[in-house]
């Protein structure tokens, strides 16, 4: 559970908090994709912008490092695998040129993750859902209201399922499941009760929704696109254009 609540929304009045969630998501999408072609000048500018945004959003660097620690381990791993080569024998070879390339790759990935953290820390879940409905409206074959409701259910039930999983694991440990060394039995004994419980609550939930006349016509929070969003989008496009610089 701790992992989930770590990066949550924090109320505030910063510029990022006041931006339209659609703007923030569009920026996140656009800049993540353009960053694939980014080189040193793009990354330097982008880092400065991210640092500034983190500061205005009131995020502490320590908290950021703490929250992305698994990802940081993963980045170190990628860096290690890319730089160390075994050419010919068993002795590892190291070259500064390859290390530089690997560093740029890891830097780019880290910045994209920082953007995701910023979005989550400054946007309410209800706003994210409303933005989702807006983005999915023009997509054919997708019922945007149903999709948004389903996403809402996922968010609501994820902590419940994690709690139930922990409960089942505790109950089985107290009955000595750790003495069973066969991994197949361990997988079955954990998964079957978990799924049974989850689908039971699904049945109850469906009945409860039906009893309350669930329909797809529901009210979502209003979204407003202001001059601030226009400026943020303009800044985003300018940052993206620096990809073209050497």
């Amino acid at each position: 559970m701790g992992e989930l609540t770590a990066i949550g929304f924090r109320p505030g009045q910063s510029v990022l908090h006041r931006l339209d969630p659609r703007t923030k998501q569009a920026l996140l999408m656009g800049i993540s994709v353009t960053s694939l072609w980014g080189n040193l000048s793009f990354l330097a500018l982008f880092t400065a912008v991210i640092m500034l945004s983190l500061n205005t959003a009131g995020m502490r660097i320590r908290r950021l490092i703490c929250e992305t620690r698994y990802f940081l381990f993963f980045l170190c791993f990628v860096f290690g695998v890319r730089t160390i080569t075994f050419s010919g024998g068993w002795t590892p070879a190291f070259s500064a040129e390859i290390a530089g390339e690997a560093l740029i790759v890891c830097w780019r990935l880290l910045l994209v993750v920082c953007m995701g953290v910023l979005l989550m820390a400054t946007t309410r879940t209800a706003d994210i859902r409303a933005a989702l409905v807006w983005f999915l409206k023009p997509v054919p074959l997708v019922n945007e209201k149903m999709a948004a409701t389903m996403v809402g259910l996922v968010v609501r039930f994820l902590p419940v399922i994690l709690f139930q999983g922990a409960e089942i694991a505790d109950a089985q440990r107290s009955r000595g499941i750790e003495r069973r060394k066969n991994p197949l039995i361990r997988l079955m004994k954990f998964t079957i009760p978990l799924f049974r419980r989850v689908f039971l609550s699904a049945d109850e939930l469906a009945a409860a929704m039906q009893a309350r006349c669930y329909s797809e016509h529901r009210t979502l929070p209003d979204l407003f696109f202001t001059w601030r969003d226009g400026m943020a989008l303009g800044a985003g496009i300018l940052i993206s254009l620096t990809v073209l610089l050497p």
């Binding site: 989930l4 996140l28 993750v113 989550m120």
Partner: peptide, 8 residues
């Protein structure tokens, strides 16, 4: 790892 976003 508790992250999300298109970046992933």
């Amino acid at each position: 790892g508790g992250t999300g976003g298109v970046g992933k």
